[in-house]
Amino acid sequence: MRNTLGERWYTPWAYLMPAVCVLGVFFVVAMVQVGYYSLTRYTPFSAGGPEFVGLENYRRLMSSDRFWWCLLNSFLYLLVTPAIIALSLWAAMVVEAALRGTRRWLRVVLFLPVVTPTIVAAIAWQAALAERDGVINSVLRMVGMPGAPWLTEWPWTLGSAMLVTLWKGFGFYMMIFLAALLAVPRELKEAAYLDGAGRWGVFRHVVLPSIWPVVMLVFVISSIGALKVFEELYVTVKGAPVEDQTVVPLIYDTAFERGDYGLASAIGITLFLVILAFSLVNLRLSSRNARAGGA
């Protein structure tokens, strides 16, 4: 078979081969494997490889308090998304309103947290959140509120990690919002001004409706990000018991500290199903968006 470029049949596959091998082995096959492992008893010391045990691991999960606590915490962690949306949308609006010369540098500065490795961010925030002499508790006490055990006690530990997620993430979503804001037709806003709308009115009735699909997308993407969180918790609240953390730290602990690959895979499948629900919503939103020609 010859194609339009007059290449041989295998030419496209030669280009595709490295990528297909990597994604195939490490993602597609791995996804099938994790499904299979979740039905087996499998440890680093399993001599004959994974041993099929049916739904045993899922049964163990259902009766595991650790698992339910972590799953609950993962859902609590989703509370970070409204904060991310608010902060990143605000940042995008500030950048959009900034003068031409300062706009680019403001954008770069506000993107710095995204560039900052989580471990570095966590070290800084740990110091700020320290119970006795941290900046945050000092400020709280100054305004007459009691300080909180940010790094040691649930649910404060969860809040601390969420703070790091928020700080590290808002610059990324700001860029998405900025792209959406810049795509709002100027004429639309000017027409609204001519009709006597105030700034709030223009935002509420012109800008917000046109970027609404993007708000929803950011909601979905940041929710998926929140469900996948590991590093913020692992480093910021080092030493917090695993049941006070979320699902991914539980997977890490189960697989690599306790050596229970089967159970860890079952937790992985559960997490995948939750994330898949969000991904499907994302897909629907994107295709609707693409059809509408927006964002």
């Binding site: 994604l23 082995v25 490490f26 993602f27 597609v28 096959v29 791995a30 996804m31 494997q33 994790v34 492992y37 998926i224 996948k228 590991f230 991914v248 997977i251 890490y252 697989a255 690599f256 690959y261 860890a264 895979s265 992985g268 499948i269 997490l271 995948f272 994330i275 898949l276 991904s279």
Partner: peptide
Amino acid sequence: ATMMIPEQVIVVPMFRT
């Protein structure tokens, strides 16, 4: 579709490979 597979879910088989 592989974008929908989070690294965090498949670390075990990735590590075994």
